[in-house]
Write a protein that binds this DNA or RNA. Sequence first.
DNA 1: TTGAAAGCGCTACCAC
DNA 2: GTGGTAGCGCTTTCAA
Lengths: 341, 341
Amino acid sequence: MSGERKATLRDVARVAGVSQATASRVLNGSIRNVQQENAARVLAAAAELDYTPHLSAQAIARGSTSTAALVVNGVDDPYFSSIAGGVTQAAEAAGLIVTMAVADRSPERELQIVRTLRGMRPRAIILTGSRIEGTDTRAPLIEELDAYREAGGSVVLISRHDLPFHTVSIDNYGGARQLARALVGLGYRRFAVVRAGAGLKTSRDRCDGFVEGLREFNIDVDERYVVEAEFSRRGGCAAARELVRRGLAGAELVFAVNDVMAIGVMTAFRDAGLVPGQDVAVAGFDDIGPAVDVHPALTTVTVPLNQVGLFAMELALSDDDAPRIVPVSTNVVLRDSTPRR
Amino acid sequence: MSGERKATLRDVARVAGVSQATASRVLNGSIRNVQQENAARVLAAAAELDYTPHLSAQAIARGSTSTAALVVNGVDDPYFSSIAGGVTQAAEAAGLIVTMAVADRSPERELQIVRTLRGMRPRAIILTGSRIEGTDTRAPLIEELDAYREAGGSVVLISRHDLPFHTVSIDNYGGARQLARALVGLGYRRFAVVRAGAGLKTSRDRCDGFVEGLREFNIDVDERYVVEAEFSRRGGCAAARELVRRGLAGAELVFAVNDVMAIGVMTAFRDAGLVPGQDVAVAGFDDIGPAVDVHPALTTVTVPLNQVGLFAMELALSDDDAPRIVPVSTNVVLRDSTPRR
DNA sequence: TTGAAAGCGCTACCAC
DNA sequence: GTGGTAGCGCTTTCAA
């Protein structure tokens, strides 16, 4: 019958011929303290009525929910979806439902999202994606998160060190530095760098690490070959075109601060008639899935994205009081996009 | 102060010196029916106390939530994440929070997820991803969804025609058929097909359409060149290896029923020393982002995934009683992985 | 073991 | 306009 209202616990209790309290006990934790027969009747009634407990009601009665919230910067980006994969995996293992919101790299949007999410009283809020610095949403964000935590919530940051909360920290600096060393080891001497705006700490760290790695060999990056672009595939394309325009003669390898950009770079080069890996080498960072499917396969720095998600959730569930930092190390993977020369 | 309890509406009312009812009015819809001054006091109190309305409490009091639920088969897969992107976009535009669960292609898991999700009383439940047929979870799933809908929920299916609910229907058959025609037009005559298990309707439809398209030209697909594999990148790799083992001499082009498989195929071919597009052409289906980044760029059938997500959400919000079907058409895109011959 | 009843935080109806 | 108050669906004492 259409328009029928949802069955409530009361209905179940009535049909089963027991009190609501008993029905609650059965359909919940303490099944043990109820007579077999009653339990059976309740279960039967629940099944018959297609009863599902109202999670909101439970939440309000119990004072706690079974949700975790995840804020990403774009579902489309493999970087975030890998992390999201890890998070949901861990969450579901812990019996939590995860709600996901997309901030699209907008700090304002992010703040607003956190506010809304907070209303759901999730057990944890996990924020992922480098924050764009220099915006005036920092203070309100901290305040919001602080209030949330003080009310018993658990905050976890992924790869952003700017706030006083649990953090899963990716070794961007170290990874990039290792990468630089490895590339020098392969015989490269002249580099171009494609990076994101200076506001993105992740990008900055990777640049700094890379530059430092080169400096160890007394190699400098020519300023002319440093181009700034959007932190995305499109950004990578644009950057590559810009590099071509500036005349790429001076650079043997371009390092893009993440794989999606690097892949964009490769594609754009190809469109410009340059063969990646042959005419110009390319390296990225993250080791997202597609990195091995492009051709030549992309040299990059592995970040165990899925694990990062798992760690974040673990951190969220371990109710530690003091902000903990879980470091995640990164690893250079040399592939065909940077042949020995 | 740590351990401090969350501020409630009562607290706000008390601090503002008004009744709870008034506070509720201010912090909610009907701001208009309250004196300027009182409104201001309430707002101030709310800000001071860092008040956030308890969504669960609201939900229970109002009898409706502001959530939508999305069930996908894997966040990692660009197919799903593109759809998820569209869905979240539309949801956020409508002021809804989206809850996402991952079924990992397990019908049992899916059923369980729907059960749990139902407890949240979301405004809509969107199920995406071809169902694996021939499992005994079909009936209970329908029952579950029916109960949900009867209680006022809205169910939307994406690309699965097996259940009596709103559906966003992707023209898999037609797209594959067009693709076949186009490929014949390019001069191809001998084809291999990489498909998923027969239980996946999406895969079956694409195969059938493809075969039908060829039949129009009196071309048959040699059974020896039809291989079945997991509906994933890995599956594609395995299938390609299998094809190589069988001796690929007979086939000029392999059609994989989706892009992730096709990309796996290309990579595996390359690993086997075959140059995709040159030694053997490859075509896929979906036109996921990475399709243009592999080399040679992948010929495929465009499915407006993001739009599919938008449509699904629209369908979910338009409370139509009768199950509606929104068709989404597909479009062949010829790229370099299938050069004219 | 069971049931009555008091909330949980909020909304909405109904008087004033 | 505003405040009292009766719930929303569930959990959880507290007695019985």
